[in-house]
Simulated assay, not measured.
Amino acid sequence: MSVTIKDVAKRANVAPSTVSRVISDSPRISEDTKRRVRKIMEEMGYHLNLNGRVLVRQSTQTIGIVMKDSATHSFENPFFSEILKGISESCHKRDYSLNLTTGESEESIFQDVVKMVQGKRVDGIIVLYSKEDDKVAPYLMKHNFPFVVVGKPLYGANKFMYVDNDNIEASREATNYLIDRGHRELGFIGGDLKFEVTRDRLKGFKLAAKQHGIEINDHSVRSIDLNDTVENGKNIVKDLMGLPQPPTGLVITDDYNGLTVMSALQEQNIKVPDNVSIIGFNNTMIAKLANPPLTTVDTNPYQLGYEASNGLIDILHEPSMIKRGVIIPTNIVERDSCLSIKPSTEKLKPQLDAN
């Protein structure tokens, strides 16, 4: 015979409602009581009846995750694995499960979202990107469905919660890191410019260059095609390094793409950092294992995921709460992929009239 909440309450000498509040991690119950009741639940072999909870509370205790790209491409990039680790940790602490989109195209990902919402498969959704012309966020807003975006909102900023970095400032600092080491021939390699994160990092790159009187032309700004990363990366490196004045410093907006570029440079016998310095983004394990190890901007992806999940669950428990924006700080992690090409004491001074 299965153990019930009443059985646990009797053993713990508390009311059944107290056991229910312990299960839902209610702040009204003290931590000592929670620990004692949970220990008794474990000793008695009590397991929450999720099917019953769905019927009684109209809750699945499940969070939906919408991937930036197809599942195949997303899991190739450890940045998303780190975000998912943060989400998973938060959900585990608060007794929620995860449901991930598995579509391989933009339309199939959107249909996965429709199924989640209309089929009542999840209580809320975390969207792992902010993208121009995307259908997911408007659809969720139209259906008044709880969601959080990892990225800067393109619309409806006051209507839903988001978690992000200050990507303009982070990219400006990354670019200044190269400029302070004497690099004036600069290149930028990003992802799809339809994504707000790429656009913001390009803005920061151009802002830093302008402040130092460095002209950036269109040939020095490139985007890597997600569908053909390796071959596209090779062509970009060939084009950039074939310019009359090739870049001596590259800002690459993802460690994954940074490794692709480093591999292409190696094929052309161009050494990092002797011939070209590189700074990446995200500080994933790729940056640590690259040869040489990659200097990178730590965007704290684990924390992005953790805060997104916590925020969504807070909204589910208190739907009337203010939809806030959370900015996760960044910092540069110095490794071996950048080289000064002039004494560090001779840093370039920003032009006073730069905007």
Rank of each mutant, 00 (worst) to 15 (best):
K6L: 11
V8G: 08
A12D: 02
N13H: 14
I29G: 01
E42D: 13
M44S: 04
L55R: 09
V56W: 03
I65L: 12
M67A: 10
D69S: 09
A71L: 11
T72M: 08
N77Y: 00
N77M: 03
P78N: 04
F79V: 02
S81G: 15
I83E: 04
L84W: 04
K85V: 09
G86V: 04
S90I: 01
C91G: 00
K93H: 05
T101E: 03
I109L: 06
K120E: 05
I125T: 01
I126T: 05
Y129R: 08
S130F: 07
D134C: 01
K135L: 11
K135E: 08
A137N: 05
M141F: 10
K142G: 01
P146Q: 14
P146H: 13
F147L: 04
L154R: 09
K159C: 02
V163I: 15
N165D: 14
N167Y: 14
A170S: 15
R172Y: 15
E185Q: 11
E185W: 02
L186M: 08
L186C: 03
I189W: 14
I189Y: 13
I189H: 13
F195C: 00
D200H: 10
R201P: 06
H212T: 07
H219N: 15
V221R: 00
D228Q: 13
N235E: 15
K238W: 09
P247A: 09
P247N: 07
S263K: 15
E267V: 12
I270Q: 07
D274E: 14
N282W: 06
N282F: 08
K288Y: 10
T299F: 09
N300C: 12
N310I: 06
G311C: 12
D314A: 06
D314K: 12
I315D: 07
P319C: 11
M321Q: 12
V333S: 04
C338P: 00
L339N: 13
S340Q: 09
K342G: 08
S344W: 12
E346L: 12
L348T: 13
